[in-house]
Amino acid sequence: MVAADLLVAQNVGFGIIALLMIVAALRVVTVKNVVHAALWLVIVLSGAAAQYLLLSAEFVAITQVLVYVGAVMVLFLFGTMLTRAKIGAEADLNNKNWGIAVPVSLLMFGVITWVLIDGFGDERLPNPDEQTQVPIQVLSDDIFGPYLLPFWALSFVLLVAVIGAIVLARKD
């Protein structure tokens, strides 16, 4: 492997962001305060957007920021505030038997890691400058071309979700 091919900047960036994401994700599932968890989740989601940029998927990254970091997080904060009188820390956010979750997720992690390393090893992604950047036009052609039907189905799902959320949450 030639050193020039290693793309030091990207790799360092990946490492830092990945570390940040993992730490933040762990905080999301361990922190005792719901609002703090939501804020840690913002970091994970923004980090994911940054990773998408590294994978040269700009449009998805932008959508990630708009939809997730913008809309979904606001929803979470609303949900938290509407259901919890107190915003502060709580003693028991975990199940009584949260212990079994640790071996289960570790087992899954072990299996997946083994399979991934076994399967992909040191296979390299095409360099960003070699591969064609994904123009939004191509993406939209893909969505409104061969994948039009899933797009319609998705629109329908969103409509149903909106109506369903209103029906569920309104007070009668």
């Binding site: 793309l7 990207q10 790799n11 990946f14 990945a18 994401m21 993992i22 994700a25 762990l26 999301v28 599932v29 994970v44 990773q51 590294l54 994978l55 979750a101 640790v102 289960v104 997720s105 570790l106 899954m108 992690f109 997946i112 890691t113 991934l116 390393i117 992909f120 090893g121 040191d122 296979e123 390299r124 992604l125």
Partner: peptide
């Protein structure tokens, strides 16, 4: 960049999510 590094990051996030 290696393919596997992104996939592994995904795996870590996935397992944390499962937990």
């Amino acid at each position: 960049m290696l393919t596997v590094q992104f996939l592994l990051l995904g795996a870590v996030l996935f397992c944390i999510g499962v937990y």
